[in-house]
Nucleic acid binder design. Structure first.
Lengths: 163, 163
DNA sequence: CTCAATGCAAAGTATTTGCACGCTC
DNA sequence: GAGCGTGCAAATACTTTGCATTGAG
């Protein structure tokens, strides 16, 4: 049994809840991924192992995992709640590529320290924070650059794109 | 006519759209507030000036204002989109008090610079970023402290609060 | 055997869209 | 007048809740 499964069991027992095959399957599936899954994503994966499982159970179990400290809710602003591994994972922030959707995790101790300093200045006690950087990742920039070169070769003028 | 109204008119005309009394009223109402209103909040305010106005128009006009650069969408993670003034407003970030809902705006050039540095390290082009710090504001901390003192005076032991 | 868990359907939110009529330009 | 804008209702998307049945302890 993995450490995470033990944490989950302990949490379940502490709250007087019950262990079920569905919860086990959802936890296992969640642990097997490394992406930032939405409830829907996880639901699809879990159904491969047990097609009779309901979307509701996945929603409810993700809440449980969050309570147990195994998952963390992340909102990227697309209207969907994503979940990432949280157990013994260091805090980190996200860069999100608006072209390909790729998510780059990063961490900067200086950034954290600066935030603490800003909070102290306002006598604000930080419980949680979220930094989200949206833009274009290296790969998509390279792709865009290549396209530009092709355009230049063809003498097709580039337009300033609206929006 | 204020600068903002001119910006709005120019945007409207550039897109071949039309000026209406509803749009004027919504813009005026928006400009008169300084909070981070949701569409629903603004709708309530606008209805005081014109009860016949529809929620849909408020949604649509807020999108327009955002396009025109007068408003900025901010998501605090409560599932609602909030809008703040954006015209000639310096970029800033938010601390949100989870007790009283107060929002503290702050800005740190060092923080911005560090983010740029992190992005450069990953060859990531920043288009937009959002920093949200959630915790307890100075006022609520003071209130909590006072409550603690009262407890201590009464010799009531404090429990570790669950959740 | 008791009470929690499950899956379905229905209800809730927040927001968007289709449409007939009305109002700018 | 042509076409955008409006308000309504319906649709959509995500998530939560009520409920009868199933299953863990």
């Amino acid at each position: 049994m993995t450490e995470e499964q033990e944490v989950f069991l302990k949490h379940i027992q502490k709250k007087g809840l019950k262990r079920t095959s569905q919860r086990d399957l959802i936890l296992d599936t969640f642990l097997r991924t490394e992406a930032h899954l939405s409830s829907e994503d996880l639901y699809r994966l879990v159904k491969q192992g047990d097609p009779s499982i309901g979307q509701t159970t996945v929603y409810r179990t993700l809440k449980l995992l969050t309570e147990a400290g195994l998952a963390r809710e992340v909102r990227f602003g697309d209207g969907v709640t994503h979940y990432e591994h949280h157990y013994k994972h260091q805090h980190h922030d996200h860069m999100i590529c608006s072209e390909c959707g790729r998510i780059i995790e990063f961490y900067s101790a200086e950034l954290e320290a600066l935030q603490d300093a800003m909070a102290a200045k306002h006598r604000f006690q930080i419980n949680e924070h979220l930094l989200r950087i949206i833009g274009i990742c290296a790969e998509c920039r390279r792709a865009a650059k290549d396209a530009e070169k092709v355009d230049a070769a063809r003498r097709i003028p580039r337009r300033a794109t609206a929006r």
